[in-house]
Design a protein around this nucleic acid. Structure first.
Lengths: 248, 248
DNA sequence: CGCGATTTGTGCACGCCTTCACAAGCGCCT
DNA sequence: AGGCGCTTGTGAAGGCGTGCACAAATCGCG
């Protein structure tokens, strides 16, 4: 089926973008739907039912339908959702059609890995600049990019109109880096350094702390151990295996 | 409420651990509180007010008080919380006093970084085994550990009584690794591979997808760009069409 | 010893999110 | 052409989390 001009979104040619007001919880799940859809598209599927897509994305089908309903009616009753159309739709909503430029600050262990992470390039992001404060690392070439000194961060990030910055520095320097990013016009920051960043209210910050994730798992380990040791604790495994994901 | 034994803490020798039933949202914040408390302890503070700790952890003070109230009354009205006591308390709840053993599967770019991540060791976790399916990587030494083949994962993980496994493999092999981990008795998995893992219901899975975080930020970028272009938008000079010319 | 300043712990209301259940719509088959 | 089965989209209900506002409790000081 060739794509028909179904509604009026990605093109934004009708003058009014009418950007939908999506719940945060929905936004956080859209990327997962998108990944599942790409996978389905590779297998040749043209349409998916909410049940099928929900299973592929690890969520409840009702939740998925409600999420998708927030972006408009892009499904066909009795049939399901057009995979290609939905991919376009979600990519447009997420702004992934812009192939956004990202810069990465801190080329240590983690930063090095992030610079080479294939998942970025394949999902709509281009890492266009690397920075580090260590003179020994400046000049090093990683994945085709040359590491530059953080002193030049503000100038270069502004020149390249970078909107998203990734911080992978030690905790001590994270705030200074964030300040420089903000000064350069960056309005979204992904922070891997432990600690709280203080930024203007128009800047979005998302934090990923690897140790925190482990600590949450540790809690559940502790809880499980306590329950099995307790008399009244439910220790018997329930019926059958179902994904047990803990919300982020 | 009527809980007033301040002295008895982690030891809990009176037979009934009485594991509190904490809300998930609270659990997810405890590690952040813990980090802030450690930082405060280093500066020599003996007590903290809920206001102070909340600021250090980046949350609302009322939320912090409610969170802490779930673990019991460990504050003193008019004074604040005893830093050392609270640290012990949270570490006990999170099960960090056990110094848990963790194994890491997949020593690619990201896995390499995780193996050397200092934040793990410093926060109650020991990486005790590394695995990879690539024969060229087996035998390599990273951070004092020798990479072993994933064929031996199940045996070794069971021998070492590993309870937490970290998956940093390509998406295609993640499910197989998860199955092996589960077979070895692992009951908590931290998954960095994109995709949904299917595991028994007694196994906890937490997922970290770096690209998803970027996509969420991308959405907010898209939204901000749309708002500035709209009539009701905020004060922003850039009126160029669809490209991002962010000028601050 | 009493009083005021300070800070915790919590009852309550509100809003968001999830889940259920079902009507509406669509395509296919007879 | 009509009916039947399937799937979406959504109204409503319930649960969870957040934040306010205040009573209870503790300390220090006159």
């Amino acid at each position: 089926m060739s794509q028909q001009r179904h509604g009026s979104t990605p093109g934004e040619a009708d003058g009014v973008p009418a950007f939908p007001d999506l719940p945060e919880a929905t936004i956080a799940r859209l990327p997962e739907y998108l990944r599942a859809l790409h996978h389905l598209a590779e297998t040749g599927a043209e349409t998916v039912s909410s049940e099928g897509l929900a299973a592929a994305a690890g969520v409840n089908s009702a939740k998925l339908r409600k999420d998708l309903s927030h972006l408009g009616s892009y499904g066909t009753r009795g049939v399901g959702y057009d995979v290609a159309l939905l991919v376009d739709q979600i990519e447009y909503i997420l702004g992934l059609d812009k192939n956004r430029a990202v810069c990465l600050v801190g080329v240590g262990n983690l930063g090095h890995a992030l610079a080479g992470y294939a998942g970025f390039a394949s999902r709509g992001f281009r890492v266009v600049a690397l920075f580090d404060a260590d003179p020994k690392k400046v000049g090093e070439q990683i994945n085709g990019l040359i590491v530059q000194h953080t002193d030049d961060l503000e100038r270069i990030a502004a020149e390249e109109s970078i909107a998203i910055g990734v911080i992978a520095t030690p905790p001590g320097t994270a705030q200074a880096v964030a300040d420089a990013l903000v000064a350069a016009g960056v309005t979204s920051i992904l922070n891997f350094a432990p600690g709280v960043l203080s930024v203007p209210s128009n800047v979005d910050v998302r934090k990923v702390d690897l140790a925190i994730e482990l600590q949450i798992l540790s809690f559940h380990e502790h809880r499980k151990a306590s329950l099995t040791a307790l008399p009244g604790g439910r220790s018997a495994p329930p019926a059958s295996g179902d994904q047990e994901a803990v919300g982020s």
